[in-house]
């Protein structure tokens, strides 16, 4: 029985939160890795694209709620998501037209594009705060739990409870769907293959008649869709706060680099690796040790949660030192 309780506790406090956090990171890292593969620079504005897009989704959600539309148990934000993606894509394409295209035509070094993206990041950062403010916003309506602790206890008779929030279940489902659609698009469709060809060998893609501006536009739109989806899921799961999205940029880059920059499969794996490491290192394992018959002195918490970003840093440094191309052989940084 105690072993079962220990398992349930691990599921409840480690596996489920890490999986949904990992899914959010994976979606974010996919966007970063696509931009890196096609446009060949690390987009520092990605975190704030998530924030800006999510702010738009929240505004549309409020609009929908005001005219009395909701999705019942499912958050209304999911209905607002496609509209938010469309609006944010228009904005991001605008940044490409006004900022990045200039440097692309000049064939500038990647570092110049990175610095340009830092500028775009600050602008989006400020815009988001102007549009929706700096306060914490909860926008998850509908049902809160798919499985609540009380229900679980009543079903199983275990003393340890397990909860699965609607936002977590939706995160996992939406991420699975988005990854499936993306990988299918990249491996089957003509446009997806053209994107991969352009990422593989730009000059040969040009010779083959692939229009680079089309590939670039498509990449921005897909990366934005992934970013806004990730941002909205993160906001539903943990509440929206503009600053959080700036901070989440670090674990997202860690995820993309661990998986191998430019490799979409690596980005997904990297997202989960970073999330599971972060949660496992900051979770106090005392309770589980107790169930297993140990009586530890302390909390068995390796790192307090305030330092969770240190985990991403350490992973990043270890990977860059020992395997710069990442686990799935992406491009080296």
């Amino acid at each position: 029985m105690d072993i079962l309780n220990a398992l349930v506790a691990i599921l409840n406090f480690v596996v489920i939160p890490a999986a949904s956090y990992g899914a959010q990171l994976a979606l974010g890292a996919l966007g970063v890795t696509l931009i890196y593969g096609i446009l060949r620079f690390s987009n520092f504005a990605h975190g704030d694209t998530m924030a800006f897009g999510t702010a738009l989704v929240i505004l549309v959600t409020w609009g929908l709620q005001a005219i009395g539309i909701d999705l019942g148990p499912v958050p209304t934000a999911l209905l607002a998501l496609p509209i938010g993606i469309a609006l944010c894509s228009v904005f991001v394409l605008g940044t490409d037209r006004t900022v990045y295209r200039f440097y692309r035509r000049k064939r500038s070094d990647p570092i110049i594009l990175v610095m340009a993206s830092v500028g775009v990041m600050f602008i989006m950062n400020g815009l988001t705060r102007l549009v929706i403010g700096v306060d914490e916003i909860r926008f998850d309506d509908g049902a809160r739990f798919l499985v609540s602790v009380q229900q679980f206890r009543a079903w199983t008779g275990l003393s340890e409870g397990l909860s699965l929030r609607v936002s977590q279940a939706i995160t996992l489902a939406v991420t699975a769907l988005a990854c499936w659609a993306l990988f299918r698009f990249l491996s089957r469709s003509r446009a997806g293959k053209a994107m991969r060809a352009y990422s593989d060998n730009e000059d040969l893609a040009l010779l083959s008649g692939i229009d680079p501006e089309r590939v670039v536009r498509l990449t921005w739109i897909i990366a934005t869709a992934l970013a806004v989806t990730a941002g909205t899921l993160y906001g539903l799961d943990k509440s929206f706060k503009a600053f959080n999205y700036f901070q989440i940029l670090l674990p997202i880059f860690a995820a993309a680099i661990v998986g191998g920059l430019g490799n979409p499969l690596g980005a997904v794996a990297g997202g989960f690796i970073v999330a599971f490491s972060e949660v496992a290192v900051t979770y106090p394992w005392k309770k589980i040790a107790n169930y297993l018959g140990f009586q530890p002195e302390g909390l068995l918490q390796l790192l307090s949660t305030e330092y969770k970003f240190a985990v991403s840093f350490v992973i990043l440094i270890v990977v860059l030192l020992f395997r710069p191309t990442g686990l799935f052989r992406g491009k080296s940084v």
Binding site: K193, R196, A197, D200, L204, S208
Partner: peptide, 21 residues
């Protein structure tokens, strides 16, 4: 071209498809 004349992470078939783009 002399070098970099294929798409290395794409299959042979996809390379040919891209040729016919």
């Amino acid at each position: 071209p002399q070098t970099h004349n294929i798409f290395p992470t794409m299959t042979v078939e996809e390379n040919l498809e891209m040729g016919a783009f």
